[in-house]
């Protein structure tokens, strides 16, 4: 139909509204809604987790199961959902998953098994830690947490979920892809300044 690489809008419901509606239904026990959410979110959250799990943990834990379990728990216990943007839900899921990963890799049985693995030091780092260094990643997390929610959502949606600007317009509630792009640019500039404060 087209040769340009622009995404084609084509849904009757914007993702924002559909996602939030699905979350509410899933929280109330609607299994179909939960499945629909999983189809939408699990691939991107699994992709996200692949950058955060240390090598040894990736060997010992089934990443897909970890993410799926965390996602189910997140949706079922999400409580009063006030978020009007899909981006807010995305950040919430991402933070819950991060906490869960941190919790999992601290478990004693994992660490005991680690002792038997070759080159344990090298395998303690996650791919992102290997890429930018543990301290930088920690500064990133701290600075990200300090941003305003809208900026945090923009950073997570673009940097960590690799969303297109068209997708971001829906996720962030922006009227156009260009507006979403500008919002990400501004958010990244603020993030870089915040990271500087963490040195």
């Amino acid at each position: 139909m087209v040769e340009d690489r622009k995404p084609l809008a084509g849904a009757a419901l914007p993702a924002t509204e559909a996602t939030i509606t699905l979350v509410r239904r899933a929280r109330d026990g609607d299994g179909q809604a939960l499945e629909a959410l999983c189809r939408r979110y699990l691939p991107r959250m699994q992709r996200w987790a692949s950058g955060r799990l240390p090598g040894y943990a990736r060997d010992l834990l089934a990443t897909d199961d970890l993410v799926q379990d965390a996602f189910y728990q997140t949706v079922r216990h999400i409580g009063d959902l006030r978020a009007e943007r899909e981006g807010a839900f995305q950040v919430y899921v991402r933070q819950t998953l991060l906490n869960r990963i941190r919790d999992q890799i601290r478990r004693p049985h994992v660490m005991r098994t680690l002792d038997a693995l070759p080159e344990p030091d090298a395998r303690r780092a996650s791919p992102l830690e290997e890429l930018v260094g543990q301290q930088t990643l920690e500064r990133y997390e701290t600075a990200l947490a300090r941003l305003k929610p809208e900026d945090r959502e923009a950073v997570v949606a673009r940097l960590e979920m690799a969303g297109t600007y068209e997708e971001l317009a829906e996720v962030l509630g922006k009227p156009s892809a260009d507006a979403a792009r500008m919002a990400v640019g501004r958010a990244l500039a603020r993030l870089a300044k915040e990271m500087g404060h963490e040195r």
């Binding site: 500064r139 690799a162 990271m195």
Partner: peptide
């Protein structure tokens, strides 16, 4: 700040590739 943006660029590149 430029150094930190470079780190952000690496993170973004990692997930884009994935």
């Amino acid at each position: 700040e430029i150094g930190d943006l470079r780190s952000l660029s690496l993170i973004a590149g990692f997930y884009r590739q994935r």
